[in-house]
Amino acid sequence: MPASTPPASPPSFSTLTLRWYRLNRGGLRATAIGIISLLAFLLVWHLLTTYRVVFFVRFTNVPSPLAVYASFTKAIHDPKFLLHVLLSCRRIFFGFSLAAIVAVPLGLIMGRFKVVHEIIFPVAEVLRPIPAIAWVPMAIMLWPTNEQSIVYITFLGSFFPILVNTLHGMSLVDPVLVRAAQCLGARERSIFRDVYFPASLPHIFTGLTVGMGVAWVSLIAAEMISGQYGIGYFTWEAYSLVQYADIALGMIAIGVLGLGSSMLIRGAGQLVMPWRLK
């Protein structure tokens, strides 16, 4: 390690670069390793498919990364593909937003008022283990249009993770904070708004992140079974039409959309909870 820079003269560009590098070494390292590992993944995929490896698993028909890239360049100019993506996003938006709008307040109220908890919790516990996919036939019966039943499935998928996490957050609120608020003259409503709600927010956001993941799982399953549009339908249709590159393209699109939506939620969480920033 070199000795520290002399204090008198302003640090030169090279010392600043060096310092910046030293401070951010950990992050740079992680990024570099991340890029290398993604490239390695692509290379392995490329080799397995180019040489059509059969070793328990058969890569005979699996599309190569280049084939997928070719079908990607074609797809982004295809309005139909964009419509698939757009419709899936719209379903996620409605299904997930409805779930958040219902589950968060419900969880807060259940956490605060024992009677509501006692009434609703048993029903929720019975319905919760049913996977959203198992609701597909029932949803088709319940809702007049296909679109509504798919949104309903998405809603169900994200509803329970959000509810359960909100309840969990409410149960962990430090009672001393509630007492502190009471000693400062807070009434029921402000205790709810200024203590219980912000105290539960970190868990609510955990619920929203998990809920978003499950929303995508449920949406894709529902689209594969009963859709006419959507990225899940696109993927399944590609299989039926023997367009193998499109299968991988659909999968990657789902992955990217899922990643993007959870990043949105994380960003929202940082905006809403500035005190949690390091």
Binding site: D174, R179, Q182, C183, M273
Partner: peptide
């Protein structure tokens, strides 16, 4: 007859609101 702002209290546990 219950807590009120007339009687201020300081607790042993840190009780500041972390979000404020």
């Amino acid at each position: 007859n219950g807590p009120s702002a007339e009687r201020g209290m300081v607790f042993q546990q840190y009780s500041l609101f972390p979000w404020k």
